[in-house]
Design a protein around this nucleic acid. Structure first.
Lengths: 365, 365
DNA sequence: CGCCCTACCGCAATCGATTGCAATACCAGA
DNA sequence: TCTGGTATTGCAATCGATTGCGGTAGGGCG
């Protein structure tokens, strides 16, 4: 009966033809007048008139129509593991800041570190005709990304990289950050420092782990393979699991360099389960400097990354790849610093007395 | 010279015509075969053939072209104050989960609580032809949103509302949450409880404040106007400012209900500046249950919101508004609960002895 | 005065899909 | 055998903008 279905919006928005008509010119002329790049092709007076009419009518070009014709969407895809990881929001904001200024916008997707989801999401992004990708889910071996790269999909990796060095990336200086952490702990007198490494299949995991070994040796500290444990994921749970394992195996250590802040938080959990106190019994250094770390119990000492800048830099780089494809891709390493807080303390007492399960020195109240 | 500029992608993607040709039918038939709703119009055998060819060629319909013709983008806009506020990521994920399942996707924008930016961003979203808006930046008086609503722009408000009750919204049950907080503190023996209210121009601010007064009276507690202070913004800084003001004016209180978690964090700052200890000297309850609150010093007792569900519910509601515009808009109030942690303690000692500046009972070490 | 060139503008095709309408074929019933 | 219907499919217009190409007018120059 009354099954009339008017096209969702009767298009109250004025279109180019309306502007053209009102200005007494052809749509083509109006189009050229509106576009700064082609404005030179039309009489200055005419252009002025078109502009005025357009503003008066409140004309807004329809990006859909434009995209269809120009095959450009001014749109990029953002692929991150999980937005609720506090590391990402500041990065995302940095990215959007740059994109917005350049007239681009971004689709945001969360893979939850599931390769199948990643595949699906990237497919979907591509079918939405994104012009580029910013990807934070790289694994060292990453056939999907490598194949996309070979297909000429513009992308820049953030945070993590693949083995393939040709793919542009923006990462923090993991090696320097790790060295900073070790140096700090060594300076506090720690000799047996453990490392709860991130997963071996991520660049950050292996780079930080190898930087850790180097730093340990440089400072002449205990270079015991038992002191390094790999976490299967960058999560609090894995951190707790790894730390507990260390404690339960009776591995002695007075400090730990966590692969990232979440893993460090896991250490906190493990400590409280084992009746240890941080930093009195064990010092901990995190990595990333997520928000609110200064309010933790205790405030976490960590390697601070320029989150916002990572986003800014990545977005700039991607725009460059898009707008001047000839340029050689490059990768940048952003500087880090150490945020010293309350989770690290100088080693008191004599020596070697480290934390081991069962002989906690400060039982929990 | 070599200034050849091939259209960005020579469109290696097969298009509908390619599929049609390969299947030996007209594009129109292929289109109908591919669309489940119109598949009935074509011979079953033909449809099968088209589907097979499409899959073989890896055909993906071009959503741009489709949108141009159908005037539907299957896209919505998300307007939030600031993604780095940990309250939002879980909500956003809830939203995207529902949208994704329904074949929609979302543009995310941050207003930084700046009305001009908000205006610009919403304009931009509209020109990108979003089919609806999810807005988390509502103020009680909000001409922009009200006008959009009158213009028939589908939207649902989250977290906060406007005065205009017709606009659908999804919010937590602020009144109950506040009552829970007060009841908890009263149960611990507190008599003089302060409230650091959120801004008066937000619904959450006024609802929580008024619920606070009600609860205070219901429990027969000190109903002193001095005990309520308004924060100009929902930020840590404002919380610190408000709490410090209270302390410096010598207003006695042994507990405070903060307008939200960030304001509660500000209290922590103020306490440490004034040499007070939480919860020994003053108890604090937050609101929102942001992530990681359990790791704070002390772990913050707070009113827990169903973040994810807020997103889910809002997205569902928006889709409903879009797909069946006839339905009457509704608003939902989601249940909250109290997460009791370490920032609240029972009132020890005798009576009335509250926290005031200058006579801190536990000077900071 | 005629020709060429430039500046400006309009025509019409195009991007890739959707969809109203028309055409065809085939079948049943009269 | 003719008519009406139904099931399929094709034709062509359309969404709103962009752009190659052609046309016109007017100025400069010979």
């Amino acid at each position: 009966m009354t099954k009339e279905q008017p096209p969702p919006r009767p298009s109250e928005q004025p279109k180019l033809r309306d502007v053209a008509k009102a200005a007494g010119v052809h749509a083509a002329t109006a189009s050229r007048a509106l576009n700064p790049d082609t404005r030179g092709l039309v009489n200055a007076e005419t252009a002025r008139r078109v502009l005025k009419v357009a503003k008066a009518l409140g004309y807004r070009p329809n990006p859909i129509a434009r995209s269809l014709k120009t095959a450009r969407t001014r749109t990029v895809g953002l692929v991150i593991p999980d937005l609720t990881n506090p590391l990402f929001p500041p990065i995302v904001r940095g990215i959007e800041e740059v994109l917005e200024a350049a007239g681009y916008s971004a689709w945001l997707t969360n893979t939850d570190d599931d390769p199948r989801r990643e595949q699906t999401l990237i497919d979907s992004l591509r079918s939405r005709q994104v012009e580029g990708l910013i990807v934070a889910t790289a694994r060292l071996r990453h056939p999907l990304l490598e194949s996309l790269h070979r297909q000429g999909v513009r992308m820049v990796l953030i945070n993590r990289r693949t083995q393939e060095p040709d793919i542009p990336s923006v990462t923090a200086d993991d090696a320097v950050g790790t060295a900073l952490a070790v140096k700090h702990l060594a300076g506090l007198g720690h000799r047996r420092i453990a490392h709860l490494a991130g997963p071996r299949h991520t660049s950050t995991g292996v780079i930080r782990a190898s930087a850790f070994r180097h730093a340990i040796r440089d400072h002449g500290l205990a270079d015991d393979p038992e002191l390094t444990v790999e976490c299967a994921q960058w999560t609090e749970e894995e951190g707790a699991r790894a730390m507990s394992g260390l404690l339960e195996r009776g591995v002695e250590c007075t400090a730990v360099v966590a692969g990232n802040d979440l893993i460090a938080l896991g250490c906190y959990d493990a400590f409280s389960r084992h009746g240890l106190s941080c930093p009195d019994d064990v010092s901990v250094v995190g990595f990333n400097d997520m928000p609110f770390l200064d309010k933790l119990r205790p405030p976490l000492t960590t390697v601070a990354l320029p989150h916002h800048d990572i986003g800014v830099e990545a977005a700039r780089m991607l725009l460059e790849c898009i707008e001047e494809p000839e340029r050689h891709p490059r990768s940048v390493l952003l500087p880090v610093s150490l945020a010293v807080r309350g989770s690290t303390a100088s080693l008191r007492g004599s020596t070697g007395a480290g934390a081991t399960a069962g002989k906690a020195r400060r039982p929990r109240r």
